[in-house]
Design a protein around this nucleic acid. Structure first.
Lengths: 194, 194
DNA sequence: GCCTGCATGTAAACGGTTACATGATTCG
DNA sequence: CGAATCATGTAACCGTTTACATGCAGGC
């Protein structure tokens, strides 16, 4: 039931155009890296597996090249489409900053503040990145019918980063007021609370 | 350099109060499940390992019970504090909804709409959950000095879900207008693009 | 007596990253 | 020539989830 999402990611990439494993890596790195990553360790074995299942097929190589370029097959498209029709699984996953914040009282007084400052900076960079990518692809892929969808994923990113910057401000406003609160001394060893 | 975060998560849990493995599982499930999960398969081996490193220690069991309750040691607190002082690693990770949206043109016309509708509903539920938890713990842990930090993590959640609901509206407004766009027929097999 | 929840654990599988090996090609 | 980058692949490792095994305790 785990559903190997790399399968579909690679299948999806090959709908954009036929690609080699190397190309696929680059495609992900240059387009969706802010929400999806694939490593060679996944890609090459998966290409074999997809080929074995008849979902993709290698194009004849030009004699001069070592590249093996794959295209998606009809059944590959069907498999992809039926995956797209399934509801997406939720996957909030783990959030390290929140974990640190959750236990921040155990750290030094300035730790939480530093954490937030650094987090805010990353969000600012991210927001700028989204805007940059959006601008670039709007020109570069002006005629690509996928463009509107691609822009939607970027919009998702900027909505989130904007919200998080707001949250940072809020947090930074409420944090210092609490720094004075004294940390409790280690209490005398308690018996297990039943 | 991978940094096993479960270590610190468990260490952190034990700063709240001494707990057994079973308790820890419940603690995470009831408090931070929306951004952190730990399974038994992690917890029990990790408790052994932490004990071996002297970062936690078992409290003497009450004769009647099988429970092994651990408390954090001084060096455990130090290790935790120094982890809290390190900057948090970014971890946007994978986002399945965005992947599906990115390739949505390959799906049936209604797929993207359905995806969004379902996503919006989840966000609405999430927003409600955050509000509910916040209300509950504000009463239940009114005197707990960790409370402000815990509320901050909840606020993070509501900021995000609010932003995503806004994004949903935006997306739903722009999606239907594009549904008319005809899907390109499979083009005659292209040679590899050089 | 039986069911539910308490409690501890482990084996196996999975998905994924990292690091490395190998060699070709291109370009300054 | 030498460096960068193209290109394919694999082995080892890591963290994590899942599923299961085991058995006790308390309450209906």
């Amino acid at each position: 039931m785990a559903e190997n999402r790399s399968r579909y990611a690679i299948l999806g990439a090959l709908t954009v155009e036929p690609m080699s494993g190397y190309d696929i890596r680059k495609f992900f790195a240059q387009s969706v890296s802010y929400f999806w990553v694939e490593s060679y360790g996944q890609i090459y074995p998966m290409l074999k597996s997809l080929h074995g299942d008849g979902l993709i097929g290698p194009l004849p190589k030009g004699g001069s090249s070592r590249r093996t370029v794959y295209e998606i097959t009809q059944s590959g498209r069907q498999v992809l489409a039926s995956w797209l029709a399934e509801p997406a699984e939720s996957q909030p996953g783990r959030n390290e900053i929140l974990l640190k914040l959750f236990f921040a009282r155990e750290g030094s007084p300035g730790a939480a503040v530093a954490l937030l400052a650094q987090f805010r900076q990353r969000q600012e960079e991210l927001a700028a990145t989204y805007a940059g990518i959006a601008e670039r692809i709007t020109v570069e892929y002006a005629s690509n019918p996928n463009l509107p969808n691609w822009l939607l994923t970027l919009s998702y990113g900027s909505h989130v980063s904007r919200a998080l910057l707001q949250w940072c401000e809020e947090a930074e406003r409420t944090l210092p007021s609490r720094r004075a609160t004294p940390k409790v001394k280690r209490s005398p060893r308690r018996r297990r609370p039943h």
